[in-house]
């Protein structure tokens, strides 16, 4: 469904991604792993058009989207939940979520989508009228994911969905990703911790210094010497 081939990205004069290859199939859950600053978030920004590649190609469901403007991705069925939730701080939870259905097609189905999401996310019902800023980090993450889903995407991309969350909230978000995936929505996310990642992901990619290091399925990847090297000392830190 999503295909990235030899994608290179730079910010100003500094290149941050080098020949990245990555793919996500229909209904798949894919994790991108790697240390801080390895370029994981940039991969997602490249997909979404926020950091357009200067070389390589990105296609989605057979269409080339390498140079597609950011705003047009939603209509193609991709939703990105940015790092640190990025809710609109002075809008209410409900207003925030409805912003997710800004795209015309999504707006038509907004009521129905909202009912579906209220089933998945109790926070939408409990705190709908509250100002987004007043929510806890975990609750904000839920709202941000719900906002992303309002456009009824085929692929949901989550940038650092577990960042700064308490272990209990991590577990909740993990459950949520499973539930979303059960509806047939493919999920692409990143996370430093390999064990957390593979508790939900079908496949994973390890990125280091902006390059593919290794990819594969399941915890078997962990036996790879490169992984052992990258994650030496970090393996025991699973929450």
């Amino acid at each position: 469904m999503l295909e990235m081939r030899r994608v290179c990205v730079r910010y100003g004069a500094t290149q941050v991604l080098w020949d990245i290859d990555l793919s996500v199939g229909e209904g798949e859950v894919v994790a991108v792993m790697g240390p801080n600053g390895s370029g994981k978030s940039t991969i997602f920004k490249a997909v979404m058009g926020l950091a357009p590649p200067f070389a390589g190609a990105i296609s989605f469901r057979g269409e080339d989207i390498t140079r597609l403007p950011v705003e047009r991705h939603v209509a193609r069925g991709i939703a990105l939940v940015l790092e640190r939730r990025r809710l609109f701080p002075t809008m209410t939870v409900r207003e925030n979520v409805l912003m997710g259905a800004f795209h015309a097609q999504a707006a038509k189905a907004a009521d129905e989508t909202l009912r579906w999401l209220q089933g998945l996310f109790p926070v939408l019902r409990e705190r709908g009228g509250q100002i987004a800023e007043s929510l806890s980090g975990g609750e904000q993450q839920m709202v941000a994911i719900a906002r992303g889903l309002m456009s009824r995407p085929r692929l949901l991309i989550l940038d650092e969905p577990f960042l700064g969350l308490a272990p209990k909230m991590v577990a909740q978000v993990v459950d949520l990703i499973r539930a979303v995936n059960a509806e047939g929505i493919a999920v692409l996310f990143n996370e430093q911790n390999v064990r957390t990642s593979f508790s939900i992901a079908d496949r994973g990619y390890v990125i280091e210094s902006g390059r593919n290091v290794v990819d594969g399925t399941g915890l078997g990847m962990l036996e790879h010497p490169d992984i052992r090297r990258v994650y030496l000392g970090e393996q025991g830190a699973a929450p």
Binding site: R10, G12, A13, T14, Q15, V16, G37, G39, S209, G210
Partner: peptide, 9 residues
């Protein structure tokens, strides 16, 4: 001149 660092970002 700003040049891309060949090593890493």
């Amino acid at each position: 001149k700003p040049q891309p660092d060949p090593e890493r970002p």
